[in-house]
Simulated assay, not measured.
Amino acid sequence: MRKIIIPLMLMFSISIFSQVSVGTPSVAESNRWTFGGGIGLGFGSNSAFSLQAAPRVGYRLTEDLEAGVIGSVSWQTSNYYRSTMFGVGPFANYYFARSFYVGANLQHYFINYHDKYYDYKDNREETALYLGGGYMQRIGGNSFMQLGLMYNVLWKENSSIFSSGLVPNIGFVVGL
């Protein structure tokens, strides 16, 4: 099932964002709004696996600085637990040379958690502050694919729902 979901999400994202980018250059230059999204994939100890989808809306404050709101839906599983998370929060990205970016993303998660070992269920909340950056590749017009690596600086090994603080991601943005 996982082998099917990830490629389908990638194809769906590329299809949507490549269609959105069609337009005249004068419209793109005057519009400061950006739209996009991403998917994330994480691995950890004890067969931990996570998949995340994160739609986003941003506004270019300057040619190189963007801020906005990002939402997320995440599914995680391991040998010992399973969880579903919904998150929302602000983000900021700084772009340089139109090939690289650094960013910050604060997410507040609402978590439905099931401990498989003790058959314990819980609903809780957790905040994550992701810092990182990556490479951007133009995919047409004012559309870019972002390949990056983020780290949750609030992650603590024994108290966090997350199996690791490190999160590789792939994202798409239109409007830069």
Rank of each mutant, 00 (worst) to 15 (best):
M1L: 14
M1D: 07
R2G: 14
I6V: 15
P7I: 07
L10A: 13
F12C: 15
S13R: 02
S15N: 13
S15I: 00
F17R: 03
Q19Y: 10
Q19F: 06
V20Y: 11
V20E: 06
S21G: 02
V22A: 10
T24P: 01
S30C: 02
N31H: 05
T34H: 04
G38N: 11
I39Q: 10
G40D: 07
F43N: 06
G44V: 04
N46H: 15
S47H: 14
A54R: 08
R56Q: 14
Y59A: 01
Y59D: 02
T62A: 00
E63N: 14
E63Y: 11
L65C: 00
L65P: 00
L65M: 09
L65A: 00
E66Y: 01
A67S: 11
V69H: 08
I70M: 14
G71K: 00
S72W: 05
S72A: 14
W75D: 08
T77K: 15
S78P: 02
S78G: 08
N79F: 13
M85P: 02
G89L: 12
F91P: 01
A92D: 00
A92S: 11
Y94K: 04
Y95P: 03
F96P: 04
F96Q: 04
R98P: 04
S99I: 06
S99W: 01
Y101F: 15
G103I: 05
G103R: 03
A104M: 15
N105V: 08
H108V: 11
H108W: 12
Y109E: 10
Y109L: 15
N112H: 07
K116M: 05
Y117C: 00
E125F: 03
E126L: 09
A128P: 00
L129D: 05
G133V: 11
G133F: 07
M136F: 05
R138M: 09
I139S: 04
I139R: 01
I139M: 07
G140A: 12
G140H: 12
G140Y: 09
S143E: 00
M145S: 08
M145E: 03
Q146N: 14
G148D: 04
L149M: 15
N152I: 11
L154V: 13
N158Q: 14
S160T: 07
S160K: 05
F162N: 10
F162K: 08
F162H: 12
S163H: 02
L166I: 15
L166E: 03
V167H: 13
P168Y: 03
G171W: 01
F172N: 02
F172T: 02
V173A: 07
V173T: 12
V174Y: 03
V174M: 02
V174P: 04
G175Q: 03
L176A: 05
L176E: 06
L176F: 01
